[in-house]
Design a binder for these strands. Structure first.
Lengths: 364, 364
DNA sequence: AAAATTTAGCAACAGCGTTGCGTAATAGAG
DNA sequence: CTCTATTACGCAACGCTGTTGCTAAATTTT
């Protein structure tokens, strides 16, 4: 937990982050754009821009002539100035993504993981994968770190894997620490779903409101973006959305309760009725909307990507019909724009966000 | 929305808020306490304390002799230095609470509201109630404003009541604006459940993690405290927790869906089976824990207060048994310490929090 | 009475955004 | 071509924040 005290360095980081977010989402911007977006004075924006230009994070990209008067300097992010690597650790595969400062996935690759793999086997796969994906030695020097998106439960704050579901060798493994030692890179560990929603939020910038990413794979999870930041929960284990009961008299779930969203969905999918499975997910999504009032719902995950349109239709329809919401209560429903790379890319963006996003402040 | 730019005034407000939070929760504190809690230098804390003392918000309250060395000055909040009034607008009653800067409820009173009351009738009741509760003219000059906690849907950001459930005369009523004009006080409008959870968080200060307040009255709602602030959602309408489906094949709810928590609970309660009703709520609470990973669950509401122990037992038991959580995943379950005043008191605290809490920053 | 220890504050400083004002660059009018 | 209006931009001084270096005050111990 990088807690900083509230001194002037916070102001610097905060305002720089706002400009960076603008550059990420708008591709080009000028001083006046930033002034309007931030409420800072033009002079203050000049200083921020000078600092970022000095660091090589942004650069001038021409002039804009509006008519009368001196032309404005147009700036743009320098995508190649910084990189991060994201890793999506699933039960049988390791997916890696090389993401640049602009949030673009420059390379991605999947490699198999041994059945019931050990921490050591994962580290070896990471080393090999990172070596392959950063063939260009120029990238190496600009790497800000590695983000790992993984199934839980895990302790994000301390970089500890508590009890990864269905993996025997993963109990209280200090993955962040051993990976940092093994790879020589700063490592950021988070739940897969939280990484996924970060990717969506990062690409949308300030216009992105409260949102959830619903991940449909062997299990069903939910990642949340609330109040301008990822919601991880009191013990950084939010997201077990699949284990919410939607059918009090339903079948028994592995978690011990009856009628969990996940088991009900699984039964429908097993029976081949994808439409019904999608409807079950849709019920869960509307439950979330009622509870949390979200602006965006993003669908992702391997099982979803097999029938994206079926799920999209079912959820969209349910949101429209069941939520009985007025026209001012709008919620967009989309399939993750990053496809199978969503988790890995989001994990990488979390690393970049640690450096170039809003600095963390201690709570109250 | 009081958005401030990130300049040095933010730092001042932020660090002052941290000291105020400390004074609220610890009752007495000294410079060294603040230094430890905030990470600021002793000299910076001296300046903050000097400012707050100058404003009359805190005052010296003796010395503490530890042994050798100069004794430390002990400070305390001045509870009487500021007040706020909170109003809980329910379907048939208006409950008012006078809350001091320390978060204590100094007076509270209930008065009936006419059936299907109009905005004008509410304003009249507010005027009369505020007059009665602030009999001491000394309080008047120290009033920071009025907070209104009310059923939704409503637009917190713009102070608009959209469509209060079951109230005919409440469609797109700009309540904040007309109340400010009518009462001559700053007014803060929020959903009842959000006000309620604010009360709990305010009294606990920085040690309070992510939490939910479950309000069981004619309907069932949920207020959320996530990441150190109230979660209101994209359209400030989070909290319709009662309208989450827990029984896919359950009875039809007024909202149009089947098997909502609220209707299932209602049926059980109607049948006189409070234990079963409490169990239904418990299922919903565990759903929330799975999804959001909360540190605290607070139970409140008129119907709950008729059988507090039954509900508390059922929810505590379900949290312990059903969530299948490791020992590091602890969640406390309590009944709101403010009883029937919870919503009104929380609405008042929201007003105080606007002045003496953490200043709002624009998102990213 | 002298020394040790802890607390508190004064003064100078660095760094943030702000304010005041001067300078550069362009289009259009005369 | 020249002048003017207009727009963009930066230098310099400033106010305010927390920080640093050092001094003074108050108490207990020796």
């Amino acid at each position: 937990m990088t807690r900083i005290t509230a001194d002037v360095t916070f102001l610097r980081g905060y305002n720089q982050a706002r400009v960076m977010a603008l550059g990420r989402t708008a591709r080009t911007f000028e001083r006046s754009t930033v002034v309007e977006a931030t409420g800072l004075t033009p002079q203050a924006v000049s200083k921020v821009i000078a600092r970022l230009t000095g660091d090589g994070l942004i650069r001038p990209a021409g002039l804009r002539r509006t008519g009368i008067g001196k032309p404005a300097v147009v700036y743009e992010l320098v995508p190649d100035s910084r990189y991060a690597i994201g890793a999506h650790v699933a039960r049988r595969t390791l997916r890696l993504a090389l993401v640049d400062l602009a949030g673009a996935v420059r390379h991605s690759a999947v490699r198999p993981l041994p059945g019931d793999f050990t921490p050591e086997q994962l580290l070896d796969a990471l080393t090999a994968g990172i070596g392959a994906i950063t063939g260009d030695s120029d990238v190496r020097g600009r790497l800000t770190g590695l983000g790992i998106g993984m199934i839980g439960p895990l302790d994000h704050a301390n970089g500890l894997v508590r009890d990864a579901h269905g993996l025997r060798h993963w109990h209280d493994v200090p993955l962040r620490e051993i990976a940092e030692k093994h790879l020589g890179l700063p490592v950021h560990l988070d739940k897969d779903v939280t990484a996924g929603i970060t990717a969506e939020a990062w690409r949308h910038g300030a216009t992105f409101g409260d949102a959830a990413l619903i991940m449909i794979e062997s299990g069903i999870g939910g990642g949340f973006w609330l109040g301008g930041t990822a919601h991880r929960g009191a013990h950084t284990n939010a997201g077990e959305f699949g284990h919410t009961v939607v059918d009090l008299n339903g079948p028994r779930c592995v978690c011990g309760r009856h009628g969990c969203l996940e088991i009900v969905h699984h039964h429908a999918a097993e029976a081949g009725d994808i439409t019904q499975a999608a409807r079950v997910v849709a019920v869960g999504v509307v439950n979330l909307l009622q509870t949390l009032d979200l602006a965006h719902v993003v669908l992702a995950g391997a099982d979803l990507l097999r029938h994206p349109q079926t799920y999209l239709t079912a959820v969209t329809e349910a949101v429209r019909a069941d939520a009985r919401r007025a026209d001012w209560l709008t919620t967009t429903v989309t399939v993750s724009s990053l496809g199978a790379d969503a988790i890995a890319a989001g994990a990488a963006m979390q690393v970049l966000d640690r450096h170039y996003g809003v600095p963390e402040l201690a709570p109250i």
